[in-house]
């Protein structure tokens, strides 16, 4: 055994060094810890809405930041161990989507300071890590790469950019989902917060349109470099373009004044559906050049998710469920 290790060490010194680190990494479970911290941040924030807003809101932000640090460390460790950019398979894309959403959420919280950024960032982080947890499959999340994906430059540029685009669209959708729930649960909501929510969603949609577009184009360049064509209407390419198109539709509808607050939010929630379908749906179809993570199991979870988003869209559009009169009264008084 010792002899074998010695031979390995001589032949592939780096691999052996990495293996020495991989075991503690697996034991530490940084993403599990991150998940717990995100839940905690969300709970503290919910508490802040019921009781002692300011100090608890700050505490929640602190816990969220701690979660982000752990999440970042885990991501960095994975990159070092694999010697690859952050996104290499479906599992790592989930982790990366969550990480970006958390970071953008933190930025939003610093800009608007209403606690909403914290809430949505914590929710995004938690959900994406849960999804990642269910994507681990047989437990090996650092498996070998498919031949077609084995290119660090393109993984680092195209895949990362497009994943940031996914994550922005999800974040906008989550913010809008938060808006939908708030509308019905807290009818006396402060209109200034509503306005900043609208401008947060608008800004995040611009952000994700930019990244999903750049990512799609980089994908086209990769396709041209390796397959000799820029665009082939492959399901995954279509999925990426659908996200771009949907974000462009939202922005044009808003510019033209065809949608206002509620419409914008409902459309942003639908962005979640578009993104989840092009992220997972294409892999489930198991067709096209890009379907590298085939999985049939995800059909029911995905359908449930889509149904829930449709419910949230309805909640964005219908009048508040809780007594409308009291809300009117307060707004009349102020």
């Amino acid at each position: 055994m010792a002899e074998l290790v010695a031979i390995d060490r001589e032949a592939q010194p780096q691999a052996v060094r990495h293996a020495a680190w991989e075991a503690p990494f697996n034991r530490a479970q940084p993403f599990y810890l991150g998940m717990i911290l995100y839940v905690l941040a969300a709970l503290v924030l919910f508490a802040s809405w019921l009781w002692k807003p300011l100090p608890l809101q700050r505490a929640a932000f602190g816990v969220l930041a701690a979660g982000a640090v752990v999440h970042t460390a885990g991501l960095a460790a994975r990159m070092a161990l694999q010697g690859r950019p952050p996104v290499t398979n479906l599992y790592s894309s989930a982790i990366f989507v969550g990480w970006c959403a958390v970071l953008v959420g933190i930025v939003l919280e610093r800009l608007y300071r209403r606690g909403f950024g914290t809430a949505v960032a914590a929710a995004c982080g938690f959900v994406s890590l849960i999804i990642a947890h269910h994507l681990t499959g047989d437990g090996d999340t650092m498996e070998m790469m498919r031949a077609v994906l084995d290119s660090n430059i393109w993984l680092a540029t195209h895949v990362v950019t497009i994943t940031i685009g996914y994550s922005g669209t999800f974040l906008a959708g989550m913010l809008a989902a938060g808006y939908a729930l708030r509308r019905h649960l807290a009818p006396r909501a402060d209109p200034a917060t509503t306005r900043s929510l609208v401008s947060m969603v608008y800004g995040v949609i611009c952000f994700s349109l930019f990244f999903s577009f750049v990512g799609t184009v980089l994908g086209g360049i990769w396709a041209d470099q390796s397959w000799g064509r820029f665009w082939g209407w492959d399901p995954k390419e279509n999925g990426a373009l659908l996200i771009v198109l949907w974000n462009a539709i939202i922005l044009h509808a808003r510019w033209g004044g065809y949608v206002r607050e509620r419409g914008l939010m409902a459309m942003a929630v639908f962005g979640n559906v578009v993104t989840s379908v092009s992220w997972f749906g294409v892999n489930m179809l198991g067709i096209g050049l890009h379907s590298y993570g085939f999985m049939e199991k995800a059909f029911w979870p995905l359908s449930t998710f889509i149904a829930s988003q449709l419910v949230l869209m309805t909640l964005c559009l219908v009048p508040p469920l809780r007594s409308h009169a009291s809300a009117k009264l307060t707004s009349a008084r102020s």
Binding site: A147, V148, S151, W154, Q225, S226, W227, G228, R229
Partner: peptide, 11 residues
């Protein structure tokens, strides 16, 4: 894969 030969506009 990812490294094609290009000649006379053909890949």
């Amino acid at each position: 894969v990812n490294e094609p030969l290009r000649y006379a506009g053909l890949t």
